[in-house]
Structures are given as C-alpha cells and as structure tokens.
Design a protein around this nucleic acid. Sequence first.
DNA 1: CCCCTAATTGACACTCGTTCTCATTTATGA
DNA 2: TCATAAATGAGAACGAGTGTCAATTAGGGG
Lengths: 165, 165
Amino acid sequence: MEHILPNLAKGRAPLEPEKLIRREPLEPGTFKRMIRKMGLKVTQQRLAILESLSAGRAHVTAQEVFETVNARYPEIGFATVYRFLRKMAEQKMVTEVRMGGLPARYELTPRRHHDHLTCKLCGQIVEFESPQIEALQEQVAKEHNFRLTHHVLELYGDCARCRTG
Amino acid sequence: MEHILPNLAKGRAPLEPEKLIRREPLEPGTFKRMIRKMGLKVTQQRLAILESLSAGRAHVTAQEVFETVNARYPEIGFATVYRFLRKMAEQKMVTEVRMGGLPARYELTPRRHHDHLTCKLCGQIVEFESPQIEALQEQVAKEHNFRLTHHVLELYGDCARCRTG
DNA sequence: CCCCTAATTGACACTCGTTCTCATTTATGA
DNA sequence: TCATAAATGAGAACGAGTGTCAATTAGGGG
C-alpha cells in the first residue's frame, strides 16, 4: 500500500490560506443528524470524517481526509473514507470539485452556491459568486429551449503570488 | 494490455448527432503546417492522429483516437497517441475537456471559443458562445488578482425534445 | 437490555486512464 | 548522405478510485 501518503511523501508545497465565502458554524449533534438524514448508520468513522471536513480547510482530497482522520483513529481504512465521501456526494451532502486530472476535492455542500477560481500553480482555490453569470447561463439555456438543472464553472489561472515569483 | 478497447467492449450507447458551431474544413497540408508550428517533427503517426481528430466526431477520448488510428495503422502504439494529444493540449492546439472522473475528451481547438450545453437525458451537446459570460469571468479573475488562462463552463439540463417526451 | 440481522468496516487485490522507460527507428538540418 | 536529436512502440509502472469478502457493529424488535 505505497500510495497511502503520496501527497505528503511528495512534499507538496503548502497552500495559501483559502479565501472562503462565510460558512455557518456547525452545532454538536449536527453530524449525527446529517448521517441519519442520509439514511445511514451513525459510526465513529463517519463522525470523524464529517468532523474533519467541517473543521479543516475546505476543498480537501479524499487522501487528505484519510490522513487527518487516520491520525486520530489509526485503524480507519481509506476505503471507508472513499465510500462515505462518494455516498455523501451522491446525496449532494458534499460537493465534489475536480480540476483537470487531479484527485477530486470535497467540501461540505455550502448553503450558498458558488463557483471556483483555481491557481494552476499552487492549487489555491478562491470561491466566488456571480449572479450576473448565473443569469446569463439561464438565458443561454432558454435560447436553446433547455431547462437548466446544474452547471460546472471552474476558472483557472495564475494567482498574483505565483506570478510574481 | 487488456484495457486497450474498454469503451468498445462496454458497448457504450450511441450519442445523438452533435449540434456544432460551424467548423472550417481543413485543406491538405494544414496538418503538416500545424505540426511544424508546434515545433515538432512531421510523422505519419501524427498526421494520422490529426486526420482522425478532424474527420470524426468532436469530443473524443484518447482511446477512441487510438482505436481509429490503429485501425488504419495497426503498428501505432497508444503511448504515441497520448503523448501527442498531451503535447497539443499544452500548446492549445487541442482542447481537453474533463467531466467528472471520466476519461478526458479532446477536440481540435475551434477557431471560435465556445462552451457546452449538455442534455442529461439524451446526451445531446449544444455548443454556445457568450462573450458576455467571458467578460464577466475576466472581471472575476481580475478582482482576485488572477491571470486567467482557461475555464470550464458546462451547462446541464433537459432539452425541449426530452422534456415534452 | 439483549439479540438478530443487515449495514458497515478494514485489508488489500484490482481496475483503468495515463505516464514513464528505454532500446530502436526516423525526420530533418548540415 | 550523414549525424543526431526527436519520436516511436512495447510494456512496465503509477495513482486515484472501486470491488471483494470475512469480521465487526449499529440499532430496532422483542
């Protein structure tokens, strides 16, 4: 199992602190409620995964979640993390963000919709909201007689810090 | 190498005919010029790959390109296809589209930039252009001090025909 | 409170798209 | 024509993610 810690092993550069749209704090008991709402059993592993997702940085990879949770509960397997993340993504409880061919990143689905601006060089993710873009998307769909259900809008570029060296 | 033909083997459902923004036909000699413009050597393999890309449907996977080219030139290896597609993507000669965790799809970078509106039900892809959305994207990037290099905008919905049954 | 049972787990083998390696072949500028 | 750097093909390797299966556990019914 040599791929458990590939990211740490590669000494990936530490990321910028994220610029996040404000998120509501989670009260105790919320996690259990979330799990039950999905029709699943409440286990220590699942609670630990949710805790890790809500406490740490947003937009983490499954491996990062695994590492965090594994540090406190060394017996947890990464299959459990992947499985639970997938199940939560299906139920829209977490949102999966994929950039290029890189590992998927997850965030607890935020109350407010937003899109992402990603630095190709350092991986930093900035969230943004643009009601104007949303409106134009609706207009495009209407022109083609589509009823819009969802969209993916990811902007890629080089952030100021990476550009100036 | 049992994964050479996974898509054919799986009997993927045929897609709707695509609605494409008009593309200019390519004159003979264009391919050689394109390759030279990238600073690469002109080989039969590369010509065959470009031919396949320009002749068939847009938005093909590397495996599909390999299969097409391999049918006519059985000695070509898939590494060559992948390598060339990657190189062309780096130089923006082809555009890579990744949705979800699915294999990347490629298209010869069209002269006119466009995004995609996809029907979730029948798989139909409608291409559209929205300079207004592009402009707003630039503005978002500017606000966050990013230099925008590219973006992914995919709209999903139900087309008129599928909705009305 | 205890049991039963289906859900969940951990270990790890496996899949599959993609990239790497390296010995051989080939395009092209001199 | 030749030298040489680039390109190729074969196949191994990589890495994210999924499947399998025996062992464990949550939690509803009694």
